[in-house]
Design a protein around this nucleic acid. Structure first.
Length: 322
DNA sequence: CGCATTTGACCGGCGC
DNA sequence: GCGCCGGTCAAATGCG
């Protein structure tokens, strides 16, 4: 089965207008407002010294770190939810269409393992369940566990002929091949960010809709995403779930927002991707509700979010009134 | 000149 | 064993 229809927009635009669409409860809103007014009064009375600015910088950095940690916890919770959902789906979906063309045994083995793939991108990837080749797969299991495979579908412009998927990592192309099933060439990439990183990526346009790029990731990065590095160092505010390639199927360039764009859909893609998608939109809705619930129920998250917003406004516009 | 990309050759797995 | 096929290598080429 395929989860590519799950288009969950989980954006935390921390740097946008605080009154513009931020979903906070009343308590959090009041807290943010009081923080803003307090800072405004304080700053209108006296000119802050450089020492105060340094202290504020440290405080903001600490908050940033705290938010990053909370984000990590949130991602772990999401993975746990996804695993439960995968189990649920595997129980309900017993059969999956198979192409009649001959396939390598390792391929079927890999597909068998996708259900247990602890990778967000597995949501969007093929999770074909064929248990008939299990015996022949035994000798491959260990390496399969190491080399996790996920598939990502990326909508591109029709005029864009490049086989590049911007996922925050650095890739070096080492080969290109025209495969039998698809007339479009398949490009082979290795992660070049770290020499020891074993991750490989295959990018090929969909045979059905050539505006869709299919990126297949193999393995796990043993280094942080470059976007994450920049985010943690404060040079950019664009964060992606770098350890989960599929989570960044629709990535944005660095911009003034903290974005967890797990997957964004274009309604027009539904028809094309429906073949490998789950049928029930309720499942995706359920997942979104679970994530939203876990966030809103966490007082630490709401408090830290309010503090981060107030701190950022102080830092950006120390004398500006609103 | 160094690095990335291109592309044909080569290798190994698989089916017949 | 042979041929097909996907994946990888490495020399050639392009680019900044």
């Amino acid at each position: 089965m395929d989860y590519s229809s799950w288009r969950i927009s989980t954006c935390l635009d921390l740097n946008t207008n605080p009154t513009g669409g931020q979903v906070l409860d009343d308590a959090s809103n009041k807290e943010v407002e009081s923080n803003f007014l307090g800072f405004e009064r304080k700053l209108s009375v006296k000119q802050e010294s450089s020492g105060a600015l340094e202290a504020e910088m440290k405080r903001v950095s600490a908050e940033n770190k705290k938010l990053t940690e909370m984000l990590t916890v949130m991602c772990e919770n999401y993975n746990a939810l996804r695993s439960q959902l995968t189990d649920y789906m595997s129980k309900n979906l017993q059969e999956k269409e198979h192409t009649p063309t001959r396939k390598r045994k390792s391929d079927s083995c890999n597909n068998n393992n996708n259900n247990n793939n602890n990778n967000v991108a597995g949501i969007y990837g093929n999770s074909e369940s064929s248990s008939t080749d299990e015996e022949s797969c035994k000798k491959h299991r260990e390496e399969i566990i190491k080399a996790k495979i996920s598939r990502v579908y990326v909508k591109t412009e029709a005029s864009d002929t490049s086989l590049t998927v911007k996922d925050g990592y650095q890739w070096r192309k080492y080969g290109q091949k025209v495969t039998r099933e698809n007339p479009c060439p398949r490009a082979y990439f290795k992660c070049s960010f770290a020499p020891s990183c074993p991750v490989k990526k295959k990018v090929q346009r969909s045979a059905e809709d050539q505006s869709i790029l299919v990126a297949t990731y193999e393995g796990e990065h043993n280094h942080p995403n470059s976007s994450q590095l920049e985010a943690t160092s404060g040079s950019t505010r664009c964060m992606t779930l770098g350890s989960h390639p599929g989570a960044s199927a629709s990535l944005r360039p660095s911009g003034p927002s903290v974005t967890l764009d797990l997957a964004k859909s274009k309604p027009g893609n539904d028809a094309k991707q429906s073949k490998t998608r789950i049928d029930s939109p309720e499942v995706g809705k359920f997942l979104v509700e679970q994530m939203a619930s876990s966030l809103t129920k966490d007082p630490n998250f709401t408090a830290a979010l309010a503090q981060a917003i107030s701190g950022r406004f102080l830092h950006q516009n120390p004398t500006e009134k609103w």
